[in-house]
Design a protein around this nucleic acid. Structure first.
Length: 899
RNA sequence: GGGCACUUAGCUCAGCGGUAGAGCGCCUCGUUUACACCGAGGAUGCCGGCGGUUCGAAUCCGUCAGUGCCCA
């Protein structure tokens, strides 16, 4: 016997272990079944499961389980990425608590610590994924730092270098002064900050007393200024173009250049140009051939090495001693000191309060410093072209389609990708340097030496590049490196390209773009056919969840409270493609009742001796109720399959919900009760047969989204062996004889019962009062149906009998309702308020007449009749006839009780 | 400043040329032997505003307003 209440915690773990132990999640390269591949977008190894993961992995698992049931050889590839900065940060902090600093113990030792940490704590998220029910092929789990994946990284780096698509260059990068590494544009987030706009006076050379006022938000970079730019059309400064100004504090002469970058509307209209510390200034500097001295070092402190020689004493303007005193000062301290000195020299015109967007490192949280350094770059623009073309031609499709625009806009304007990072944790760049500075890129040190000897002769000592590659460099290879590339494996042949990549829109630039570029370049084919983009999870108010706001919800806590199935079903129900999902505890609590409902329905079936019957033949069933539910199940199967095909998780969940709750529970089981309580016979047997068949269908239909509950019921009922639902066949429609007739009959029954219930409720007739149903103008078919369903009608409509009104019969005090061609009279004698009944009928009549008038007006329009589709015209004619007929019957009913 | 999305019942959202929907909430009723995480019934909408296309617009086009996001 099933327990009275559903308690997911009592079976979730046992079922998961059962599936996993039996190898149910495993792909089988040797099978002949068509593959279905989803590459997990590898979560960060330092991560733990948050609600966004719950969303994306619920969707992925639902798709994978569904396809597996359809007989596909499903590969859901698990794994994590090594998360260069994040991991290094975690372990550094950990060592810090023991008083150990990274640089003290050295690279090798530090990496040992990281691997140790990874062995102990790196599996958090994969353990948590199991609680969610995710059916990943665990024995195939990969990590981006694995030997195989590292080989792939070296292979790709060397090949791209040979092809000229990876090169070294000296450009401005986003430098994170806290981690002392370059970071990607995408790891930079701009934050609105309250700052100041300082208007500074730069003395014009040769014109004593004249100043050019420049406006800046970063006075500390003034030391590295090499020009002042004004707009070429700006009348105020026209005569100064080509002149020079004296750079305050430094004393260097710098030119005034004309450049459209300077916006006459902003600030003072003149802007100082510091090419080594600002991306826009860098471009201006290149256009005008300016020097590009750096004045801040790796930690963001003032460094005078590159301007030492420029320092000049200019009375009242520049003092080399002051500048020398700035050396080694942090950029913010230097800002204060510089502003104070300028104020002392009366070179500050005004200070304006100013709101500006300051780029911050998303992990370090400190302002990014643009910095001119030598780095390795990947020619992303060249790699992007075929990726753009693949989406344009539809070889890879986005769902929803409009996200292709986001992809295109990014890819068409893609910048050289800085792939080197000044970290220790990651794939060390396979490049070696000779003492003379020559670079040798090779798969191994031996190969590098071979190259070096060929180029430079014997006796050279090479040193390896210290830097590592961007984590995304290895993630980009994930769709094929996990399958064994560069080896030619059976897995690679079978599972590449993958079917679908599932991810949020915020990650299009990271995974999607990079996997596309690398996949196409190295495999000659797109890495996935479809990119399914879902939204982000927000709190109930639509706010982004964040630890600092304190509005995060823990998916595991929700699993503890309501079960994994409830969380999964809630997520699926709310997952409209591409739109953000507002999710709170309450939503999960609400959807939990659906699982309970199914549990109780199953319990009811069990109590009535409904059990799996493999010999059941749906096509032989004659009882209308059984045919009706079998037909409804057929429709649900069609809808659910179509919804999953279209990645409509919400529609899939919704159609299952309606079928289980409305059709199976409120419809079928309720109508089946009289037969189930009655004597054994052919009809009862058919209804039980249909019940077990449809329950089995429901369990299979819902398994992809509610794997635990369905498997538990499947096993308990004995539909198959333990843990076998995961491999059961996805349901197919079954033949049902005369389905339309069964639908017609049940629709009639539901219509009759609802109408009677509605009238009784409105008339406040207590359930204890039972009344005869006397029908007038009923067709023989209606009378026959009434007879056939008498027990059900009695039970559900609180009726004593259902029969034709005798010709000489004229009951007093009746409520009347129109069902199809017939009018049903409920003699309520004393219980009825005639006035109220008249009003009710009047309302019904008005409603009908209004509808009839609307349709009639439409049909009176000759344009409509001649131009609309014939079937639409016909449909409206039928509707009009229906409304008119019902109105006529209501009129008769009204007349009957009106004197 | 450029771009994208959104605006439908109290709330959360489907629907995207032909009868305005769901879930939750709300109101009324309920000791019918699966389920109160339930059952029955009910109320609630100028489908953001204004134009246009069309026989017909929540749905297509334009425009305005508001909201959110992305990129500068």
């Amino acid at each position: 016997m099933l327990d009275k209440t559903l308690s997911p915690a009592s079976f979730e773990q046992r079922l998961y272990e059962g599936w996993e132990a039996s190898g149910a999640f495993g792909a089988d390269p040797s099978s002949t079944a068509a593959p279905f591949t989803i590459m997990i977008p590898p979560p960060n190894v330092t991560g733990s499961l948050h609600i966004g993961h719950a969303l994306t992995f619920t969707i992925q698992d639902t798709l994978v389980r569904w396809r597996r049931m359809q007989g596909r050889d499903a590969l859901w590839q698990p794994g994590t990425d090594h998360a260069g900065i994040a991991t290094q940060m975690v372990v550094e902090r950990l060592l810090g608590t023991q008083g150990v600093a990274r640089r003290d113990i050295g690279r090798e030792k530090f990496l040992e610590h990281i691997w140790e940490w990874k062995a102990q704590s790196g599996g958090t998220i994969t353990r948590q994924l199991r609680r969610l029910g995710a059916s990943l092929d665990w024995p195939r789990e990969r990590f981006t730092m694995d030997a195989g994946l590292s080989e792939a990284v070296r292979e790709v780096f060397v090949t791209l270098h040979q092809q000229g698509l990876i090169y070294r260059d000296r450009r401005l990068v986003n430098w994170d002064p806290k981690f002392q590494t370059a970071i990607s544009d995408l790891e930079v987030e701009s934050r609105e900050m309250k700052g100041s706009l300082w208007h500074l006076r730069y003395p014009v050379e040769g014109q004593p007393g004249r100043y050019l006022v420049v406006a800046t938000t970063r006075p500390e970079t003034l030391l590295g200024d090499t020009a002042v730019a004004v707009h070429p059309e700006d009348e105020r400064f026209r005569d100064l173009i080509g002149a020079s100004v004296i750079l305050p504090l430094v004393g260097r002469r710098i030119p005034v250049v004309a450049d459209e970058y300077s916006d006459p509307e902003k600030g003072s209209g003149a802007v100082k140009i510091t090419p080594a510390h600002d991306f826009n200034d860098f471009e201006v500097g290149k256009r005008h051939g300016l020097a590009m001295p750096s004045v801040l070092d790796a930690v963001g402190a003032v460094c005078l090495d590159e301007i030492e020689g420029d320092l000049l004493a200019v009375p009242g303007v520049a003092d080399p001693d002051f500048v020398r005193g700035l050396a080694g000062q942090d950029r913010f301290a230097a800002r204060k000191a510089i502003v104070a000195e300028l104020e002392r020299l009366d070179l500050v015109e005004t200070i304006e309060a100013h709101q500006n967007a300051v780029p911050h490192g998303d992990r370090s949280g400190v302002p990014i410093e643009p910095r001119l350094t030598m780095q390795w770059y990947c020619d992303a623009a060249t790699l992007a072209k075929p990726a753009i073309e693949a989406v344009e031609s539809g070889r890879t499709e986005f769902v929803p389609k409009h996200f292709e625009n986001v992809f295109f806009s990014w890819m068409r304007d893609i910048q050289p990708w800085c792939v080197s990072r000044q970290l220790w944790w990651g794939h060390q760049i396979p490049a070696w340097y000779a003492p003379d500075g020559s670079v040798f890129v090779a798969r191994t040190e031996e190969e590098a030496y071979v190259q070096a000897r060929q180029a430079l002769g014997e006796g050279i000592t090479l040193t390896r590049d210290e830097d590592v590659l961007d984590t995304w460099f290895s993630s980009a290879l994930w769709p094929f490196s996990t399958l064994g590339w560069p080896q030619k494996t059976a897995e690679l042949a079978k599972y590449y390209p993958g079917d679908v990549l599932v991810t949020g829109w915020d990650i299009i630039f990271f995974w999607v773009a990079r996997m596309m570029m690398m996949g196409i370049h190295f495999m000659g084919e797109v890495p996935f056919r479809t990119v399914y983009i879902h939204g982000l999870v927000r709190d109930e108010k639509g706010q982004k969840m964040s630890k600092s706001k304190g509005n995060v919800i823990d998916p595991l806590e929700l699993v503890d409270s309501f079960g994994a199935d409830a969380l999964r079903f809630t997520i699926a129900s709310l997952a409209t493609p591409g739109r953000d999902v507002k999710l709170g505890r309450k939503r999960v609590e609400d959807f939990r009742s659906f699982g309970t409902k199914l549990w109780n329905a199953a319990r009811f079936c069990e109590m009535n001796g409904i059990a799996p019957d493999p010999g059941f033949d749906p096509s032989a069933v004659r009882a209308p109720l059984a045919r009706w539910i079998l037909d409804a199940a057929n429709q649900a199967i069609g809808e659910a399959t179509a919804a999953l095909d279209a990645y409509r998780m919400d529609d899939y969940a919704g159609c299952c919900y309606r079928f289980v709750w409305n059709s199976f529970c409120d419809g079928f089981l309720e109508f089946a009760k009289p037969a189930l309580n009655g004597p054994d016979g052919a009809e009862k047997a058919e209804i039980k047969g249909a019940a077990q068949h449809v329950l089995g269908t429901i369990l299979r239909l819902l398994h992809p989204v509610m794997p635990y509950l369905t498997e538990e019921l499947w096993d308990r009922f004995g539909y198959g062996a333990e843990f076998s639902l995961i491999h059961a066949a996805w349901p197919e429609p079954v033949p049902v004889s005369e389905a339309a007739a069964a639908r017609g009959e049940l629709d009639w029954l539901v219509g009759l019962v609802s109408a009677v219930r509605a009238v009784r409720a409105e008339m406040n007739v207590p359930p204890s009062v039972t009344v005869p149903l006397l029908v007038q103008d009923a067709s023989p078919e209606t009378l026959a149906r009434g007879g056939a369903w008498l027990d059900t009608i009695r039970r559900m409509a609180r009726a004593t009998e259902f029969r034709a009104l005798a010709t000489d019969e004229a009951p007093k005090g009746v409520a009347q309702l129109v069902v199809g061609e017939a009018t049903v009279l409920l003699p309520l004698a004393g219980a009825i308020d005639l006035e109220a009944e008249r009003a009710r009928l009047r309302r019904e009549l008005d409603k009908n007449e209004a509808e009839a008038a609307k349709v009639s007006a439409k049909l009176a329009n000759p344009d409509f009749v001649s131009r609309a589709k014939p079937e639409v015209v016909e449909e409206n004619r039928e509707r009009l006839a229906g409304f008119e007929a019902e109105a006529a019957r209501l009129q008769v009913a009204l007349d009957r009780i009106t004197d």
